[in-house]
């Protein structure tokens, strides 16, 4: 209960921490009508993705048809012939796979639109789900969360919650676009509202 006090005090930090929070290793590539994001991952070799939602296997070539740059990016990131289709939430279809290096890669497709598609690989070691608890695009909450995460939030440098969205079957997709470089961290909360992880976003 009194940990709420500490969370409240942390949110009121007059000089937010510059280095203590773990910074996720990342790389971005922007392509026309799509976002390619390489974010830092750890991995449990005994599990396909390391989360309860393992999805169903589909050919990688069918994930983002017509998106040659993203197809090429998936190849560059050594994603194999299949990905797991995890489901659709808030109009966003989400796929995941482990690449040849064992890193988790995501692909998202806004099913009702011809843009806003993207791919992402977690390059951290350890990474998702043992290190990072959330893999998301930094400008908008869209991605996957580890088991036990019920809500994810984008938080600004001053501690203000910029966006919050629920997690269903390890998936989340907010319709609110915050924009790149605005949020400084992503926070994962359990069903009781306790913070289970705070991850610095690339460039924060």
């Amino acid at each position: 209960m009194s940990n709420h006090v500490i969370a409240r005090l942390a949110a009121a930090n007059p000089v937010p921490a510059p280095v203590r929070a773990h910074r996720r290793r990342s790389r971005y590539v922007l392509v026309a009508a799509a976002t390619l994001l390489l974010v830092p991952a750890a991995f449990a070799a005994d599990r396909l993705l390391g989360i309860a939602n393992e999805g169903t296997s589909v050919p990688t070539s069918s994930v983002l048809p017509g998106q040659s740059q993203l197809d090429e990016a998936l190849r560059d990131m050594h994603v194999g012939e299949t990905m797991q289709e995890l489901g659709t939430v808030n109009g966003v279809r989400i796929y995941a796979a482990r690449n040849a290096e064992g890193q988790i890669c995501l692909a998202i497709d806004h099913v009702a639109e011809t843009y806003e598609k993207g791919v992402l690989c977690d390059l951290n070691d350890p990474g998702f789900p043992d290190g990072a608890k959330v893999l998301t695009f930094p400008g908008q909450l869209q991605g996957i969360a580890a088991d036990g995460v019920a809500t994810v939030e984008l938080v600004g440098a001053q501690g203000a919650v910029l966006d919050s969205t629920p997690v269903t079957d390890n998936l989340f997709a907010s319709s609110t676009r915050i924009g790149m470089g605005v949020a400084s961290s992503v926070v994962a909360l359990d069903a009781s509202g306790n913070v289970v992880a705070t991850q610095k976003l690339p460039g924060a």
Binding site: M1, S2, H4, V5, A7, A10, G193, V196
Partner: peptide, 27 residues
């Protein structure tokens, strides 16, 4: 832990400033 308890008590005493409980953290 004592400081945390005292801060909690001080906050409870300032009822006019109470707002919905924020999220907690794990230590």
């Amino acid at each position: 832990h004592r400081a945390k308890t005292r801060l909690r008590a001080a906050l409870d005493g300032a009822a006019s400033f109470r707002r919905p409980e924020p999220k907690g953290v794990t230590e």
